[in-house]
């Protein structure tokens, strides 16, 4: 367990640095564009509109999901996904793309994935805010269930941290892995109940779909906003999610610990 604690210690002691560097990352990304940081919102907005049109108006004929209108259901899945997908792909690439920058200074490599997570988090929180306004306009209130939102956000961040730590390490050593992650994320978009509901499948298939940990997070965030249930209702799923996260974190930390000094050699 010591590598895990060491990694966390590195994150905590370098937190102000992570924060600043994340801001610089965002700035650097949009420096070249006329609309600058606005693209953080234009991009998802266009995608939301396309998905809403294709899946909501086209395929579902505008049918509601339970009590919620389809657009609300879709947004509750898409907003977390727009955070998850780029974070995973960029995070997996973070060590490879930045190690040259970092290796010239005394600087723990393990903070690189965290910078990506934090950099993407700003727009995620803003989008969550916009989402809350939309929910308010629709008169949808999660009530007491909203209390579990922080729990699911912690789940989300911890899982992303564990996963990007592991995959950024692997991807720095095996470049093929990055391409694999990219196509896997494209596939997972369709395998996660974002524009479809889990309930529309038979039980057995539901259980298989649930092996995808993003299902836990996205459905959890939905439950919180729509007031559909508590996180401890499905304890089996909760146990699965946390043990998987811990496993990824453990493997990631050990692997990272073994390779942190050697990244420069393998690039």
């Amino acid at each position: 367990m010591t590598p895990v604690f060491n990694i966390f210690k590195e994150q905590l002691s370098h937190f102000p640095l992570i924060f600043r560097l994340a801001i610089y990352d965002i700035k650097g990304n949009y420096q070249m564009h006329y609309l600058g940081i606005l693209w953080q919102f234009i991009n998802p907005l266009i995608q939301v509109l396309v998905y809403w049109f294709v899946f909501g108006v086209g395929l579902r004929q505008g049918g509601a999901v339970g009590d919620a209108p389809f657009i609300v259901y879709l947004l509750l899945g898409l907003v977390p996904w727009f955070f998850i997908a780029p974070t995973i792909t960029q995070g997996s690439n973070s060590i490879y793309s930045k190690v040259n920058l970092v290796s010239k200074m005394k600087f723990p490599v393990s903070v690189l994935p965290s910078i990506t997570i934090l950099g993407n988090m700003f727009s995620f929180f803003l989008m969550l805010g916009i989402l809350a306004v939309i929910l308010f306009l629709y008169g949808i209130n999660g009530g007491i269930y909203l209390l579990q939102l922080p729990y699911y956000l912690i789940c989300l961040f911890l899982f992303l941290f564990a996963f990007t730590l592991l995959s950024s390490t692997i991807s720095a050593i095996i470049r093929d892995y990055q391409l694999m992650i990219q196509s896997a994320m494209r596939m997972l978009f369709f395998l996660t109940p974002i524009f479809w509901t889990l309930e529309s499948f038979p039980e057995q298939i539901q259980s298989i779909v649930k092996l995808n940990p993003f299902v836990y997070i996205i459905n959890g965030i939905r439950d919180a906003f729509l007031g559909q249930g508590w996180f401890f209702d499905d304890w089996k799923y909760m146990l699965y999610f946390w043990s998987l996260t811990l496993l990824i974190l453990l493997v990631g930390s050990i692997l990272h610990d073994n390779f942190k000094d050697k990244f420069v050699d393998y690039l």
């Binding site: 367990m1 298989i208 799923y237 699965y240 811990l246 453990l250």
Partner: peptide, 18 residues
């Protein structure tokens, strides 16, 4: 710890599936 956590993950996924 690695073995232990892997075991728990495996068990919980079996529990989830079956």
């Amino acid at each position: 710890p690695l073995l232990f956590v892997s075991l728990i993950t495996l068990l919980s996924s079996i529990l989830l599936l079956f």
